[in-house]
Nucleic acid binder design. Structure first.
Length: 486
RNA sequence: GGCUCGUUGGUCAAGCGGUUAAGACGCCGCCCUCUCACGGCGGAAACAGCGGUUCGAUUCCGCUACGGGCUACCA
């Protein structure tokens, strides 16, 4: 049988990385077996609906490469793929009534006040177990209330005795006492189905074979199975994915600043890197590879290897992985990404084709995320104030005094040089250094400091000379001399 | 509180009764080098605890501890 999985988000805002991973796993499971991957929009909560969130879902799926075969925007044979539209078609009401006829569900007319009175405080938490009050209503009474337009819901009628067992592909068999299964609401008083009901009905009607979802649904799964059984439907394969947490082992929240795909993209991460990273949060391939494209993932994805324990979102490692993607990029493609950033930081350099190319090259091997670039190259545009202590370097055997002396010696020599291109100036300097019996670092370290005002730069002294040119270089060296008290 | 799930270095994560308990990020050291980075080499660092089962447990079972989830007319 052909595998069919689905991603079924609620349009309530940005895509949480936990949801992204669930979507990714659902996608990979389907693609690995040449199955279908569909998108269904679960907008049954009118309160939480956010305008534009559906478009955001389409865009995110597109940016991540998780192409769906069926969905609201692409159509398909089992639509509509938006639950609010299915409500209008009367789908859920029809199935709920079927359950009522089978005594597997019943109308409930209890007021909010009565429901509240059932609540108890346990350990500071509110716990409510419905008492099946309306189950005892006669058919007559129900008809009367319905005719009178009394607000109502439809509840699932769960037994109080016995056990219900279900199997999760990852967690194995899970057995729950039926006494734990409360009579959850299937159809709300506004006529919309709850997630609990719509999910089961739609997964069946849409032919979903593998239900991939977050761990938080594991404890309500027995109730879903009772629904499948009441209808006489096949129970799907369940795959419950573990949580993704922050460094404090708490559910990744908006507070962390990187809880959604959109946040990460804004922070300069590449979609491919995010997908790759998220795939490895809770799953690993047999061969221990880490850098994998979406196609690589499709090839080797085996859902049995999904981990059962929650994973901490390691921002550091994501940065590293993003850097790997940037470094492996074709220089031409990297340039497309880097140029706008360089242009914004150093407009004058970006207009010079040869300088732009050099900047791109020097930055590509050391950048982890694009926003790192300005900090690395800003000094080319302007020499910021610096502490002369950075002239001291133990290994280079330099200090302020030696640096001052070297710079003063060097200025006339560099004044005499015409060609500042890297190779030429490097040759010239090397000659000068050996002539004077110095070590490379003894001269080049202070020179680099004077030119950049930084202990760390994305390139060596001579490359800076080349990009800065003769006049600006000399100016900065003189500034260094004066800062050093010369 | 009840139910339920989880627990291998700081983090991700191999392992599926017998291993010197992989690998990666991060960290530290060395090498390379006109600094940093890249690259190369090396290092520190883990089976939550206690009981079983077994000739033998990180691996199987139980208990405890800790953490998560559910306990909504939210998904």
């Amino acid at each position: 049988m052909k595998i069919r999985t689905r991603y079924a988000p609620s349009p309530t805002g940005k895509m949480h990385v936990g949801n992204l991973r669930t979507a990714l796993y659902a996608y990979l499971i389907a693609r690995h077996e040449n199955g279908d991957f569909l998108l269904r929009i679960e907008d049954t909560d009118q309160e939480r609906f956010v305008e534009g969130a559906t478009d955001l879902i389409y865009r995110t799926l597109k940016d991540t490469g998780l192409k769906h075969d069926e969905g609201p925007d692409v159509g398909g044979p089992v639509g509509p793929y938006v639950q609010s539209e299915r409500v209008k078609a009367g789908i859920y009401q029809r199935y709920a009534e079927e359950l009522v006829a089978k005594k597997e569900a019943y109308y409930c007319f209890c007021t909010q006040e009565r429901l509240d009175s059932l609540k108890q405080q346990i350990e500071g938490k509110e716990v409510m177990v419905y008492d099946k009050h309306c189950l005892s209503l006669s058919g007559e009474e129900v008809r009367e209330k319905l005719a009178a337009g009394v607000p109502h819901v439809i509840r699932q009628n769960n037994p109080r005795e016995g056990k219900t067992v279900f199997t999760d592909e990852l967690y194995g068999e899970i057995e729950v006492d039926n006494a734990e299964l409360d009579d959850m609401v299937l159809i709300k008083s506004d006529g919309y189905p709850t997630y609990n009901f719509a999910n089961v009905v739609d997964d069946h009607l849409m032919g979903i074979t593998h239900v991939v979802r977050g761990n938080e649904y594991i404890s309500s799964t027995p109730k879903y199975n009772r629904l499948y059984e009441a209808f006489g439907w096949d129970i799907p394969v369940y795959i419950h994915c573990p949580l993704i947490t922050d460094e404090e082992h708490k559910k990744l929240s908006k507070r962390s600043g990187h809880s959604s795909f959109e946040d990460l993209i804004e922070q300069g991460f590449l979609a491919e890197a995010v997908v790759n990273f998220v795939a490895l949060l809770g799953w690993s391939p047999e061969d221990n590879r880490e850098i994998m494209s979406l196609n690589d993932l499709i090839d080797c994805f085996d859902y049995h290897r999904i981990s059962k324990s929650p994973a901490v979102f390691d921002y550091q490692k994501l940065r590293w992985m993003n850097g790997e993607y940037l470094k492996a990029m074709d220089p031409g493609n990297f340039r497309k990404l880097a140029e706008p950033v360089i242009r914004e930081t150093l407009p004058a350099f970006a207009d010079d084709e040869s300088k732009l190319e050099k900047l791109c090259a020097m930055v590509q091997s050391r950048v982890e995320i694009l926003p790192d670039i300005p900090g690395m190259i800003r000094f080319f545009g302007e020499l910021a104030d610096y502490d002369t202590a950075i002239y001291c370097h133990k290994k280079m055997k330099t200090d302020e005094a030696s640096s001052l002396a070297v710079l003063k010696e060097l200025i006339p020599f560099l004044e005499a040089q015409e060609d500042y291109s890297n190779d030429v100036i490097y040759q010239a300097l090397s000659g000068w250094i050996t002539e004077h019996g110095y070590k490379n670092g003894y001269v080049l370290w202070p020179l680099r400091i004077a030119l950049s005002g930084l202990a760390t730069t994305p390139c060596g002294a001579t490359e800076i000379l080349e990009l800065l040119g003769r006049e600006e270089s000399l100016r900065r060296m003189r500034k260094g001399v004066s800062l050093l008290g010369g």
